[in-house]
Amino acid sequence: MIAFIVRRLIQAVVVTLVVGFIAFGLFHFVGDPVTNMVGQDTTAEEREKIREQLGLNDPFIVQYGRYLGRVARGELGVSYRLGVKVTTVIKERAPATLELALCAALFALCVGVPLGVYTGLHREGLLSRFFLTISLIGVSLPTFLIGILLILVFAVILGWLPSFGRGQVTQLGFWSTGFLTPSGLKAMILPAVTLGLFQLTLIMRLVRSEMLEVLRTDYIKFARARGLTDRAINFGHALKNTLVPVITITGLQIGGIVAFAIITETVFQWPGLGLLFLQAVQFVDIPVMSAYLMLVGIFFVIVNLVVDLLYYVVDPRLRIDRALSGGH
């Protein structure tokens, strides 16, 4: 088990290095950051001096190597756009993104799983058809459009919810949370729904098809014959057996949530890592872009690791297999 985790962590390092390498290779194509860093009246020599000072004239392999050297010492550099240390910026922005991703994932799971079970059990029900139609919208509409539509309805027309920002945040040590104030909670609703909607529909459709599959199996029929309650059959036996694929997909989707947060955060001016990254791309803010990409790489590897570990919790068969193979 420990060997497995260590192996995965080594993989994480390799993934990060590769992501960083590709990222640095691509930075050549996004333009010259110095154009954005100085005013229009700055002379060509001045610009050249800044470029030299930032090491932008070196080949990208050299830049990458130097960057890795700094990262090894725990320095991620200074943002070209904000003039603030990248570690500081990321520490400031990460809570916003993580809270948003958490809410979106919870929303997707807590609504998606029951809806999936319901539509699986009542295949022909009117309500089921309604949910499935709605879910088509969630799958097919792009995130930014859903965001804008929600803003139009709930902020502009109804005036119930704020259209942008995080509301009032409370500082708990380095962690800024929006969970403790009414305005913070209200501000969370629209972005979380926007971000979670796609995942919700995906989970709902997945649970539904798995449920339909499982409900046809013999052990469910035997359970019914034994006279177990519907509740025990549907949730204790059927649902539990659908969970392995659901966990896999959900886990991978959490990575997706963080990645898709770029669009949601831009629409709602959510001060998280996604917005930071998009602005970094527009400004050619290389230190922020590289740190973000490597961070997301690490994040994906960790999510995958957690998903693998969760299999053992959910599916006893895997534990038995492992024990047997260990005994050989």
Partner: peptide
């Protein structure tokens, strides 16, 4: 002063009175 990057959101925030 609150920057809002997306122009559609910025106009919405004005219309909604935020």
């Amino acid at each position: 002063f609150r920057p809002i990057a997306n122009p559609a959101t910025r106009v919405s925030a004005l219309l909604s009175g935020e």
